[in-house]
Each structure stands twice: as C-alpha cells, then as structure tokens.
Write a protein that binds this DNA or RNA. Structure first.
Lengths: 223, 223
DNA sequence: ACAAAAGTGTTCTCGATACACCCATGC
DNA sequence: GCATGGGTGTATCGAGAACACTTTTGT
C-alpha cells in the first residue's frame, strides 16, 4: 500500500451518524455490528473515514449508504469529538451527525464494513463502541431541544401524514402526552402544513385528513 | 524534519477561535494578521493545528494564548468546517470555536505566528483569510440565538457589574434598545444574580448597585 | 349499538409589553 | 439647580394550558 507522509502528525478524521426514526411509538437509532477491530462484534454508529475529496456531509451520507443502505435522510452536524484517546488505534477525530427518517421508507441492509444492522430503542441500547453512547445522548438532547423551536419533527414524517401521526411523533420525542386540540391549533397556526385534499381510512373509525409539509426538506425556525 | 506516514491520506485538523468582546457598545472580534503563507498579511481568526496529545478544546485555548496572549475566556464549540478546498495547501478540517470575554480584562499581544493582533467591530470587518467570514457570521448568529435561552451574556461581564452594564450588553448583541424596568424585572426574577452589597460611583449621577453571577463559569439554559 | 380515532372552541392564567416619575450624585 | 444615569410599579395584551363532546367509520 502506498504511504501518505506529512511533516507533522495528522489525526484521522471520521464521521459518525446517529440515524433516528420512530418505530412502534418509540424513538430508535440505527446501529451496525462492527466487522473488524477494534470493538469487533460490538454495536456502533455507522460511520468511517472521510475521503480526501469529499466534504464532511458527503462523507457522512456515503458511509451511511455503504454500511446500511440508507439514503435520502435529513442530516445535520451535531458535534465534533476529539479526545486524544477515544480510539485505541490512533488519534481519530470524529465529526458526528444526526439524521432523521420515517421508518416506513427504510430498509437497512448490512454493507461492507458491517456484520449486521439493526434498530435499537433508545431506552434499550446495547453497550456501544468508542464514545458512541455519548454521541447518541447528545443527539437526543439536541433533537428534543429543536422540537420546540424548529420543524425537525417533519424529518420523521412520510410525504403525506395525518395530524394524529404528527402528534404521536411529538409525544414520542418529548416523552409525554399532548392535548389534541392545542396541538392542532398550534401546528395549523404555523401555516407550514397544506391539506392534500384526500384522507386516509385506517381501522374502524373516521378517516383522517392528509397533510403534507409546505416546504419539504427545509427545517425552519419557528416562534 | 521527521516524516509521519499513514496507510491512508489524513487531513490536517486545526481549531479556529472567534473571540468576541464588547468595546464602546459595539460587538468586536479578535483577529490576527497572518505572518506566513497562505493569505500572508491577511486578517484571520486565531487558530492552528491540533497537537497529537491535546483535545480540541485545549488546542483552541493554546492557540488563542500563543497567538494573542489571551487566556481565561468562555469557550464553546461552534461548527466544523471541512470543504476539501478551503485551504490551498492541503486538506484542512477546522473545528471552529467561539469565545467570550469582557474587554477590560484583555490585553491582546501579537504572538509567534501572528504579525499583529487587533479588535474589529463586527460591522466593519476587513476581508478575511480562508472561510473565516463565514465562521464569524455563524458565531454571531449562534450568540444572538443563545442570548434568549441561556446566560451566555455573562461571558462578557467582569466579576462585578451593574444592571445597566448588563443591559447594554444585551442591547448591543440584539441591536435594539430594551425597556429598563422590564429588563431588570426579568433578570432579577431568574435568580442568577447576587448583590455584592457594594456600589460603583462613575460620573455625575447616582451610584449603581454591583452584582455578581451566582454560578460563575456556567452557562445555564433558562426559560 | 358500540368501539375507536377524528375533529372542534372557550375560558383561564401567566409571562411579556408598554409606559413615567423620583433618587442620588457631581459640577 | 441642573444634568446624568439609577431605581421603581401597574395596567394591558396575547400565547399557552386546561378542558368535553360530536362525527365518521367498521363491525
């Protein structure tokens, strides 16, 4: 293998991605089982080394796709972790991202560097490689905070959804029940949702109106 | 010089620090004039390469001290910039920090890698090296946002200060005047300030009570 | 008829805003 | 006595919280 040499020591730089979704009204994160050392066989966040000619965000999306087969998620930089001894091999600085997606659209499959891929409920995480438990905790904290002043929650929704489904997402992330009338009043007042004009019938009850996001893709700051 | 070699290409990693203070009721940032290439002679944020055995935050504090002589500031990670071509020499990923300090305590002096050090009002910045204009813009945005839900503003205060001085800081960062009674009511209700029992006489008017922060060092989330 | 989620308004409370005058001091 | 910033209270407004019943559907 060719060698890459520098006058000064250079750390390695990786990205790690905490991809969240909501399954069965629980917040879950996507983990991969490590195929190689260190922490072989241990569960970890998907991620890997940044390539010379890609920006950090592209590296994160590429690693996520390579290791889990997942594409098309909402992605946002979280924090950069750089303690000198956080990886036993060499000095590795990790730029952590968090990502959101509706679970219905996802079919994760184990890729090259991963022996296995699986969703874990956030309240039932296995023991994790490196400092990834810390990364997930910070990501969850950020997600909760952004619920209140942004439209991150839309990252969990399919293109068309009901207000009931949206409320469930808010309730799941905040961990508490919300009043239906207040929630709807507030959400519709934001003027970020548009009725599709159709409705969805599911189960033995009245069909619900379907909505879509007025500005899909964008996470807006509100209030 | 010894060579440091790796099997894969490694980017260099630097920290850059946007140190803010308030001078003459204006928000200002500390810049250094670059002594070497690239952008020789250009103004830039203080910062430099992370050393193998220091964490990112320590690297930022060390660079700030080396290049400007400034120590003892409040420091917080801002964002990591990593476009492949942001430095003409090689791939350099920069972990940006922002820092706050009361200007009265600071006496910046040019250090090893800097030909000169100076404060610049944020509304009168010179043209800047690299992507540092973007870094400063993001830092200012973050600072403004955190005013509303945290106690970052205390980072600009000396150990003892008057409510009038604190209000000036809020007004400067928000760029608008605030009502004196409402400001004091709100600030005192937070229960984060303690009277020192003394007062300060300055100018031809009534002396002002002095306060100190109840939990110095900590930036708390409020509301 | 009944079970199950959809849909809909009003009242109350509390925090945010607007606003004007006296106080202590130096000159 | 006057100029200067320090210090104080009350009335109003609006957003958020609390709260219960009717509607539509399938069985």
């Amino acid at each position: 293998m060719t060698q890459h040499c520098y006058d000064y020591p250079h750390p390695a730089v990786t990205t790690d991605i905490a991809l969240f979704t909501i399954r069965d009204e629980r917040l879950a994160v996507l983990l991969v089982r490590r195929a190689g050392e260190p922490f072989k066989g241990c569960w970890a966040l998907p991620g890997g080394f940044v390539e010379p000619n890609e920006c950090l965000e592209d590296g994160a999306l590429r690693e996520l796709a390579e290791e889990t087969g997942v594409t098309g998620v909402y992605l946002e930089q979280l924090y950069t972790f750089g303690k000198p001894d956080r990886d036993p091999r060499e000095r590795i600085i990790s730029v952590a991202y968090y990502a959101l997606a509706p679970s219905e659209l996802l079919t994760p499959v184990a890729g090259s560097d991963a022996a296995d891929v699986a969703w874990f409920d956030l309240d039932a995480l296995p023991s994790l490689a490196f400092d990834h438990a810390e990364v997930i905790a910070l990501a969850q904290q950020r997600l909760r905070a952004k619920l209140d002043y942004s439209t991150v929650a839309f990252g969990f929704m399919q293109p068309e959804f009901t207000l009931g489904e949206l409320q469930k997402v808010y309730e799941t992330i905040r961990g508490e029940a919300l009043d239906k009338r207040n929630f709807r009043k507030h959400m519709l007042a934001l003027d970020l949702l548009a009725e599709t004009g159709t409705s969805r019938r599911v189960g033995n009850h009245r069909p619900a109106k379907l909505y879509r996001v007025a500005h899909p893709g964008a996470v807006l700051y509100i209030k």
